[in-house]
Design a protein around this nucleic acid. Structure first.
Lengths: 114, 114
DNA sequence: AATTGAGTTGACATGCAACTCAACATTTGA
DNA sequence: TCAAATGTTGAGTTGCATGTCAACTCAATT
Protein backbone atom coordinates (compact mmCIF):
# COMPACT_ATOMS: atom_id res chain seq x y z
CA UNK A 1 0.00 0.00 0.00
CA UNK A 2 1.13 3.52 -0.81
CA UNK A 3 2.61 5.40 2.12
CA UNK A 4 0.76 8.24 3.76
CA UNK A 5 3.32 10.72 2.52
CA UNK A 6 3.11 9.62 -1.08
CA UNK A 7 -0.67 9.70 -1.03
CA UNK A 8 -0.70 13.12 0.54
CA UNK A 9 1.70 14.52 -2.03
CA UNK A 10 -0.29 13.00 -4.86
CA UNK A 11 -3.59 14.38 -3.62
CA UNK A 12 -2.18 17.78 -2.84
CA UNK A 13 -0.78 18.04 -6.36
CA UNK A 14 -4.08 16.88 -7.82
CA UNK A 15 -5.69 19.73 -5.90
CA UNK A 16 -3.13 22.05 -7.45
CA UNK A 17 -1.94 23.73 -4.28
CA UNK A 18 1.41 24.16 -2.61
CA UNK A 19 2.52 22.81 0.75
CA UNK A 20 2.33 26.35 2.07
CA UNK A 21 -1.24 26.84 0.94
CA UNK A 22 -2.37 23.54 2.34
CA UNK A 23 -0.63 24.22 5.62
CA UNK A 24 -2.14 27.67 5.94
CA UNK A 25 -5.65 26.40 5.35
CA UNK A 26 -5.17 23.54 7.77
CA UNK A 27 -3.64 25.81 10.39
CA UNK A 28 -0.32 23.99 10.29
CA UNK A 29 3.26 24.88 9.58
CA UNK A 30 4.29 24.26 5.97
CA UNK A 31 7.43 22.47 7.09
CA UNK A 32 5.21 19.92 8.77
CA UNK A 33 3.55 19.11 5.44
CA UNK A 34 6.94 18.68 3.86
CA UNK A 35 8.05 16.21 6.49
CA UNK A 36 4.81 14.27 6.19
CA UNK A 37 5.14 13.99 2.43
CA UNK A 38 8.69 12.75 2.76
CA UNK A 39 7.87 10.32 5.51
CA UNK A 40 10.32 11.97 7.88
CA UNK A 41 7.75 11.89 10.68
CA UNK A 42 4.72 9.73 11.49
CA UNK A 43 1.31 10.63 10.03
CA UNK A 44 -0.65 13.31 11.86
CA UNK A 45 -3.55 12.78 14.24
CA UNK A 46 -6.64 11.34 12.56
CA UNK A 47 -8.55 14.57 12.99
CA UNK A 48 -5.80 16.47 11.22
CA UNK A 49 -5.96 13.95 8.38
CA UNK A 50 -9.67 14.62 8.09
CA UNK A 51 -9.14 18.37 8.06
CA UNK A 52 -6.59 17.96 5.29
CA UNK A 53 -8.98 15.80 3.27
CA UNK A 54 -11.66 18.42 3.53
CA UNK A 55 -9.32 21.02 2.16
CA UNK A 56 -8.28 18.72 -0.65
CA UNK A 57 -11.93 17.80 -1.23
CA UNK A 58 -11.36 14.07 -1.13
CA UNK A 59 -12.88 11.21 0.85
CA UNK A 60 -11.00 10.61 4.06
CA UNK A 61 -10.90 6.81 4.23
CA UNK A 62 -7.87 6.20 2.08
CA UNK A 63 -5.66 8.76 3.73
CA UNK A 64 -6.98 7.78 7.13
CA UNK A 65 -6.21 4.14 6.45
CA UNK A 66 -2.72 5.11 5.30
CA UNK A 67 -2.31 6.95 8.58
CA UNK A 68 -3.41 3.88 10.51
CA UNK A 69 -5.28 5.94 13.07
CA UNK A 70 -8.90 6.12 14.10
CA UNK A 71 -10.72 9.45 14.47
CA UNK A 72 -11.11 10.65 18.04
CA UNK A 73 -14.88 10.66 17.72
CA UNK A 74 -14.88 7.02 16.76
CA UNK A 75 -12.67 6.09 19.67
CA UNK A 76 -14.75 7.90 22.24
CA UNK A 77 -18.00 6.84 20.65
CA UNK A 78 -17.30 3.16 20.24
CA UNK A 79 -14.84 2.72 23.08
CA UNK A 80 -17.54 3.13 25.70
CA UNK A 81 -19.81 0.41 24.35
CA UNK A 82 -19.23 -3.17 25.54
CA UNK A 83 -20.95 -4.44 22.42
CA UNK A 84 -18.70 -2.39 20.19
CA UNK A 85 -15.66 -3.55 22.13
CA UNK A 86 -16.36 -7.20 21.54
CA UNK A 87 -17.40 -6.64 17.96
CA UNK A 88 -14.17 -4.83 17.25
CA UNK A 89 -12.07 -7.46 18.96
CA UNK A 90 -13.74 -10.19 16.93
CA UNK A 91 -13.54 -8.30 13.68
CA UNK A 92 -9.89 -7.62 14.28
CA UNK A 93 -9.06 -11.25 14.91
CA UNK A 94 -10.86 -12.27 11.74
CA UNK A 95 -8.71 -10.05 9.59
CA UNK A 96 -11.56 -9.10 7.28
CA UNK A 97 -11.13 -8.35 3.60
CA UNK A 98 -12.33 -5.11 2.10
CA UNK A 99 -15.20 -7.01 0.51
CA UNK A 100 -16.25 -8.34 3.88
CA UNK A 101 -16.20 -4.86 5.37
CA UNK A 102 -18.46 -3.80 2.56
CA UNK A 103 -20.80 -6.61 3.51
CA UNK A 104 -20.83 -5.41 7.08
CA UNK A 105 -21.61 -1.92 5.94
CA UNK A 106 -24.67 -3.35 4.25
CA UNK A 107 -25.65 -5.16 7.42
CA UNK A 108 -25.29 -1.83 9.18
CA UNK A 109 -27.70 -0.13 6.82
CA UNK A 110 -30.14 -3.01 7.05
CA UNK A 111 -30.27 -2.62 10.81
CA UNK A 112 -32.25 0.58 10.48
CA UNK A 113 -33.67 0.40 6.96
CA UNK A 114 -35.70 -2.75 7.35
CA UNK B 1 -22.81 3.48 34.02
CA UNK B 2 -20.46 2.54 36.82
CA UNK B 3 -17.11 4.26 36.76
CA UNK B 4 -13.97 2.42 35.84
CA UNK B 5 -12.65 2.78 39.36
CA UNK B 6 -15.76 1.38 41.01
CA UNK B 7 -15.84 -1.56 38.65
CA UNK B 8 -12.18 -2.28 39.19
CA UNK B 9 -12.52 -2.22 42.96
CA UNK B 10 -15.57 -4.44 42.81
CA UNK B 11 -13.90 -7.00 40.59
CA UNK B 12 -10.66 -6.98 42.51
CA UNK B 13 -12.54 -7.67 45.73
CA UNK B 14 -14.53 -10.42 44.05
CA UNK B 15 -11.21 -11.96 43.10
CA UNK B 16 -10.18 -11.67 46.74
CA UNK B 17 -6.85 -9.97 46.23
CA UNK B 18 -5.26 -6.75 47.47
CA UNK B 19 -4.21 -3.75 45.43
CA UNK B 20 -0.63 -4.78 46.06
CA UNK B 21 -1.14 -8.29 44.78
CA UNK B 22 -2.97 -7.13 41.71
CA UNK B 23 -0.33 -4.51 41.01
CA UNK B 24 2.51 -6.99 41.43
CA UNK B 25 0.96 -9.46 39.01
CA UNK B 26 0.22 -6.74 36.50
CA UNK B 27 3.70 -5.28 36.82
CA UNK B 28 2.40 -1.98 38.15
CA UNK B 29 2.86 0.09 41.27
CA UNK B 30 0.18 -0.53 43.89
CA UNK B 31 -0.35 3.18 44.36
CA UNK B 32 -1.44 3.31 40.77
CA UNK B 33 -4.22 0.81 41.44
CA UNK B 34 -5.34 2.86 44.38
CA UNK B 35 -5.63 5.99 42.32
CA UNK B 36 -7.50 4.16 39.60
CA UNK B 37 -10.02 2.77 42.05
CA UNK B 38 -10.59 6.20 43.51
CA UNK B 39 -10.89 7.89 40.15
CA UNK B 40 -7.95 10.16 40.92
CA UNK B 41 -6.49 9.58 37.48
CA UNK B 42 -7.83 8.50 34.11
CA UNK B 43 -8.20 4.79 33.31
CA UNK B 44 -5.05 2.99 32.16
CA UNK B 45 -4.13 2.08 28.61
CA UNK B 46 -6.45 -0.49 27.06
CA UNK B 47 -3.76 -3.13 27.04
CA UNK B 48 -3.24 -2.65 30.77
CA UNK B 49 -6.97 -3.04 31.31
CA UNK B 50 -6.83 -6.33 29.44
CA UNK B 51 -3.88 -7.52 31.52
CA UNK B 52 -5.78 -6.68 34.69
CA UNK B 53 -8.84 -8.56 33.48
CA UNK B 54 -6.77 -11.63 32.82
CA UNK B 55 -5.45 -11.55 36.35
CA UNK B 56 -8.95 -11.08 37.73
CA UNK B 57 -10.22 -13.78 35.38
CA UNK B 58 -13.05 -11.73 33.97
CA UNK B 59 -14.13 -10.77 30.47
CA UNK B 60 -12.52 -7.56 29.35
CA UNK B 61 -15.40 -5.82 27.57
CA UNK B 62 -17.05 -4.21 30.55
CA UNK B 63 -13.89 -2.78 32.06
CA UNK B 64 -12.64 -1.82 28.63
CA UNK B 65 -15.88 0.00 27.90
CA UNK B 66 -15.64 1.77 31.24
CA UNK B 67 -12.14 2.84 30.27
CA UNK B 68 -13.42 4.19 26.96
CA UNK B 69 -10.32 3.05 25.12
CA UNK B 70 -9.70 0.66 22.27
CA UNK B 71 -6.95 -1.97 22.45
CA UNK B 72 -3.83 -1.11 20.49
CA UNK B 73 -4.20 -4.22 18.38
CA UNK B 74 -7.65 -3.16 17.30
CA UNK B 75 -6.45 0.30 16.39
CA UNK B 76 -3.55 -0.89 14.33
CA UNK B 77 -5.52 -3.72 12.83
CA UNK B 78 -8.61 -1.83 11.82
CA UNK B 79 -7.06 1.59 11.36
CA UNK B 80 -5.24 0.50 8.22
CA UNK B 81 -8.33 -0.76 6.40
CA UNK B 82 -10.35 1.76 4.37
CA UNK B 83 -13.37 -0.49 4.68
CA UNK B 84 -13.06 -0.63 8.43
CA UNK B 85 -12.58 3.12 8.56
CA UNK B 86 -15.83 3.85 6.81
CA UNK B 87 -17.70 1.15 8.68
CA UNK B 88 -16.56 2.58 11.98
CA UNK B 89 -17.44 6.12 10.97
CA UNK B 90 -20.92 5.02 9.96
CA UNK B 91 -21.46 2.88 13.02
CA UNK B 92 -20.35 5.72 15.22
CA UNK B 93 -22.75 8.19 13.67
CA UNK B 94 -25.62 5.74 14.09
CA UNK B 95 -25.10 5.47 17.81
CA UNK B 96 -25.95 1.80 17.92
CA UNK B 97 -27.63 0.12 20.86
CA UNK B 98 -26.10 -2.87 22.57
CA UNK B 99 -28.72 -5.06 20.92
CA UNK B 100 -27.72 -3.74 17.52
CA UNK B 101 -24.08 -4.49 18.21
CA UNK B 102 -25.11 -8.01 19.07
CA UNK B 103 -26.85 -8.20 15.71
CA UNK B 104 -23.68 -7.08 13.98
CA UNK B 105 -21.70 -9.68 15.84
CA UNK B 106 -24.02 -12.26 14.34
CA UNK B 107 -23.51 -10.79 10.90
CA UNK B 108 -19.82 -11.10 11.54
CA UNK B 109 -20.07 -14.77 12.33
CA UNK B 110 -22.30 -15.36 9.34
CA UNK B 111 -19.66 -13.90 7.06
CA UNK B 112 -17.48 -16.95 7.51
CA UNK B 113 -19.88 -19.59 8.77
CA UNK B 114 -22.23 -19.66 5.82
C1' DA C 1 23.06 37.49 -11.46
C1' DA C 2 19.59 38.25 -8.22
C1' DT C 3 15.07 37.45 -6.70
C1' DT C 4 11.30 34.72 -5.76
C1' DG C 5 8.52 30.69 -4.81
C1' DA C 6 8.61 26.15 -3.32
C1' DG C 7 10.41 22.58 -0.61
C1' DT C 8 13.62 20.45 2.95
C1' DT C 9 15.98 19.87 7.28
C1' DG C 10 17.54 19.93 12.22
C1' DA C 11 16.73 21.60 16.54
C1' DC C 12 13.48 22.56 19.70
C1' DA C 13 8.75 23.16 22.22
C1' DT C 14 4.68 21.59 24.55
C1' DG C 15 1.41 18.79 26.42
C1' DC C 16 -0.43 14.66 27.84
C1' DA C 17 -0.56 9.56 28.82
C1' DA C 18 0.87 6.36 31.76
C1' DC C 19 2.91 5.49 34.98
C1' DT C 20 6.67 5.28 39.68
C1' DC C 21 8.45 6.67 44.27
C1' DA C 22 8.42 8.03 48.92
C1' DA C 23 5.81 9.29 52.61
C1' DC C 24 1.83 9.06 55.28
C1' DA C 25 -2.94 7.21 56.92
C1' DT C 26 -6.08 3.67 57.95
C1' DT C 27 -7.78 -0.83 58.74
C1' DT C 28 -7.56 -5.29 60.72
C1' DG C 29 -6.59 -9.41 63.15
C1' DA C 30 -3.84 -11.66 66.91
C1' DT D 1 -3.78 -2.61 71.68
C1' DC D 2 -0.59 -2.35 68.40
C1' DA D 3 2.01 -4.05 64.68
C1' DA D 4 1.54 -5.63 60.20
C1' DA D 5 -1.15 -5.30 56.23
C1' DT D 6 -3.45 -2.52 53.29
C1' DG D 7 -4.72 1.77 51.18
C1' DT D 8 -4.08 6.91 49.92
C1' DT D 9 -1.73 11.02 48.36
C1' DG D 10 1.48 14.48 46.22
C1' DA D 11 5.26 14.99 43.55
C1' DG D 12 8.13 13.42 40.03
C1' DT D 13 9.45 10.65 35.71
C1' DT D 14 9.57 9.08 31.00
C1' DG D 15 8.35 8.75 26.44
C1' DC D 16 5.82 9.86 22.61
C1' DA D 17 2.50 12.57 19.75
C1' DT D 18 2.13 16.64 17.49
C1' DG D 19 3.69 19.93 16.12
C1' DT D 20 6.78 25.07 15.42
C1' DC D 21 10.81 27.97 14.09
C1' DA D 22 14.68 29.37 11.71
C1' DA D 23 17.82 28.40 8.45
C1' DC D 24 18.84 26.35 4.52
C1' DT D 25 18.66 24.50 -0.77
C1' DC D 26 17.13 24.40 -5.41
C1' DA D 27 14.73 25.57 -9.69
C1' DA D 28 12.64 28.87 -12.47
C1' DT D 29 12.02 33.79 -13.72
C1' DT D 30 13.18 38.41 -14.42
Amino acid sequence: MASFGDLLREERRKAGITQRELAAKAGLDFSYISKLENGRIPPPAADTVIAICEILKIQAEKLLAASGKLPAGVQSGLGTSPGAQSFLQNANKMNLTEAEWKELNSSLRRLRND
